[in-house]
Design a binder for these strands. Structure first.
Lengths: 164, 164
DNA sequence: CACTATTTAATTGCGCGCAACTTAATTGCG
DNA sequence: CGCAATTAAGTTGCGCGCAATTAAATAGTG
């Protein structure tokens, strides 16, 4: 089937490889550019971008077990444990073993951590301004990215055993 | 101006903070989901995602100085130097001081590195399949992301001194 | 009850990504 | 020419992100 047009197929493969380069770069670059803007804005709060994500969850939901944090952020304990330790060292959160289940660790913002929210309120507008996008465009991007993530996640699961 | 409706403004800020959480998560998650799919696919080539990006440039342009690689990939020597060292240890590239300018280091794929391209040709199609997107949608995403990156980069530069 | 299986955090190891610094070569200016 | 400024790589340090492993607590089963 594919042996019918070896030259054409090869040429198309090469074309796809170039396209791959394009889209890879775009995503990689956009992700890091976003990270860069947040880094600048968050520096005055003394937070890294992933630390900010954790605080966003805590501000919205209050005390949360590490497990739940991981589900919200799609991060495992290998990433969260040291990150939370640093947030605790900075005085922004407290970690306490749950009394009902000694395996679980509850994370809650300290008074200082809660107070930080007031200063964080100005951030989203600055980020929005930096993107140069309208609210509507952001919503659309949001939707697209979520769909993409879902597709990629399910594909990654099916890919593992050795598809094709 | 904004002092006219303090309650309303605060509520809106909170709303924006929730939105920020949404879009932050989306981007962060999408980026890592993409990375995850590539990780699975690239494992059989023995490459990490950033290493694959480097090889894509080398396959397309041949011998390239580290400086140019950095411009293509938006990466500095702090990231590239150890990465290239690993690629060289894997026998995929060679690094040689330029004769014309002893400051510059030329990177070129070895025979083995060039041969790897043949196996890489199948990757883009698998990635495309994983995204569940059409070619047109990919192109549109590509365009949007590039515009976004440009906007963010210029904003980051203007932001640094201490805007507002 | 004893004993295995599961669940939850934490730890270890490695590869980015980036800031800050160092070293060496080249350029440019007086 | 001589010497400061610039440029290119490399190094160091730190914080993710993730795979793999470990340790402890709980749940489930005979």
């Amino acid at each position: 089937m594919t042996t019918e047009v070896p030259q054409g197929a090869a040429a198309q493969d090469a074309e796809w490889l170039r396209l791959d380069r394009q889209i890879c770069f775009s995503l990689h670059a956009a992700s890091r550019a976003f990270n860069g803007v947040y880094r600048v804005v968050l520096k005055e709060l003394g937070l890294t971008y992933p630390q900010y994500l954790v605080m966003l969850v805590l501000w919205e939901h209050g005390e949360t077990p590490v497990k739940k944090l991981g589900e919200h952020l799609r991060l495992d304990s290998g990433t969260l444990s040291p990150l939370l330790k640093r947030l605790e060292a900075a005085g922004l959160v407290r970690r306490e073993r749950s009394m009902r289940d000694e395996r679980s660790v509850e994370v809650r913002p300290t008074e200082q951590g809660t107070a930080l929210r007031a200063r964080a309120l100005r951030i989203p507008r600055r980020i929005m301004a930096a993107t140069g996008l309208t609210l509507e465009e952001v919503h659309e991007l949001h939707t697209r990215l979520d769909r993409l993530t879902t597709a990629l996640d399910t594909a990654a699961l099916e890919e593992t055993p050795g598809c094709e």
